[in-house]
Amino acid sequence: MYEFLIIGGGIAGLAAGQALAPLGRVLVLEAEAAIGHHASGRSAALFEESYGKPAVIALNRASRPDHATAGHLSARGFLLVAVEGEDAAFEADLQAMSIAEMSVADARTRVPILSDGVTRAAFEPDAMDLDTDAMLQAGARAVRAGGGAVLTGMRVDAIARAPGGWQVWAGGETHEARTLVNAAGPWADAVARMAGATPLGLTPLRRSMARLKAPGGHDVRGWPMLMGAGESWYAKPDAGAWIVSPAEEDPSEPLDAFADDMVLAEGLARYQEAVTEEVTRPIATWAGLRTFTPDRLLAIGPSELDGFWWSVGQGGYGFQTAPAAARLLADRIAGRGSELGAETVAALDPRRFLRMTA
């Protein structure tokens, strides 16, 4: 019997496995043929410390030293721009993200394709790229080094209580563990129902992406991430190319998401207003599901069932919060104090939703 069985092989599950491995053997079950197949494999991969609500920012700050020590951060920068009529959204972004306004002329030195339609700009030099693949692989290595396993192609069919813990049927096999961790992303509420736990009301939201050729033949590798006011779109260098997202949040069923062509076209049109180079036919398109709780904060902690724990609701913050979120889970399971303040721990406790519906 394993000490911990984690359902979900994205960053939430693998980071949890890494944090729990010192406490006992860990088994991670991933439904797909490879780890990080869904949201974790389709992330914009940016660390922006001030992105999110206060409890998320607390996780970001607590995670930063881990990212730096592991060598998972590299310089990128973040440039916010607005066109005419977007001043209110731009001002709200300035306040929410605590970034400094700069002249459009200075912004154009960083991204030379900004159009005359851009009226305002702000820059955050401290935003960083995250090596998401390295983070996933580090989690998997830590699990295996602790005597555990990461198994792919293991879609969960049923869950039941067992003497001293839980039984999980997946991939035609039965797996047993004392403690069950639900890190199943968009499928997490369904996993909870199998185990007899109360679902949290998770909502998967689709976000589409398009990879374009580097605009105008520019070398974009040193350009910052670029975002429209109110997160109406964003763009970012990616392996010598340029990815653009309409930044939509359209509700979806849990599934292997794909881009909506109309939504993508509308987002590319918004992006086009801010740049001089004409949008070309995408090299590739894709989408991912960002899964949120009703209050858009992560749910890290116990359920109402003994031995059933949650690590879900990462939304758009999964990679940047992963080290601290996983450590919080391990601390709570082990009955240890957390580096995070009591207010943050309470804000992330999954049982807050039970209180809301009681």
Rank of each mutant, 00 (worst) to 15 (best):
M1A: 09
E3F: 15
G8I: 13
G10C: 01
I11G: 02
A12R: 05
L14F: 07
L20H: 01
G24F: 10
R25I: 09
V26M: 05
L29E: 01
L29R: 00
A34H: 11
G36L: 01
H38I: 03
H38W: 11
R42D: 04
A44E: 00
L46E: 00
L46G: 06
E49H: 03
S50C: 08
Y51F: 07
G52Q: 07
N60V: 11
R64H: 13
P65C: 05
H67M: 09
T69H: 11
A70T: 05
H72A: 08
R76I: 11
L80Y: 14
V81Q: 06
G85A: 07
F90L: 05
E91M: 12
V104M: 03
T109M: 12
R110F: 15
I113F: 15
S115C: 10
V118T: 02
A127E: 04
T132I: 06
D133L: 09
Q137F: 15
A145D: 10
G146C: 13
G147C: 11
A149F: 11
T152S: 12
T152D: 12
M154W: 03
R155P: 02
A160D: 13
G164S: 05
W166V: 00
G172Y: 06
A177V: 08
P186W: 15
W187P: 03
V191F: 10
R193T: 15
T198I: 09
L200I: 11
L200Y: 12
G201I: 02
R207K: 11
R207M: 13
L212V: 04
P215R: 05
G216P: 15
H218E: 13
G222E: 04
P224V: 09
E231N: 12
Y234N: 03
P237R: 11
A239S: 08
G240T: 05
P254Q: 05
D260V: 13
A265C: 07
Q272P: 14
T276A: 08
P282Q: 00
R290S: 10
R296P: 04
S303Y: 00
W310A: 00
W310M: 03
G313T: 08
Q314N: 12
Q314P: 01
G315M: 07
G315H: 14
Y317Q: 04
R327G: 10
L328S: 13
L340I: 10
G341V: 14
V345E: 10
D349L: 00
L354R: 06
L354P: 07
R355Q: 12
M356T: 11
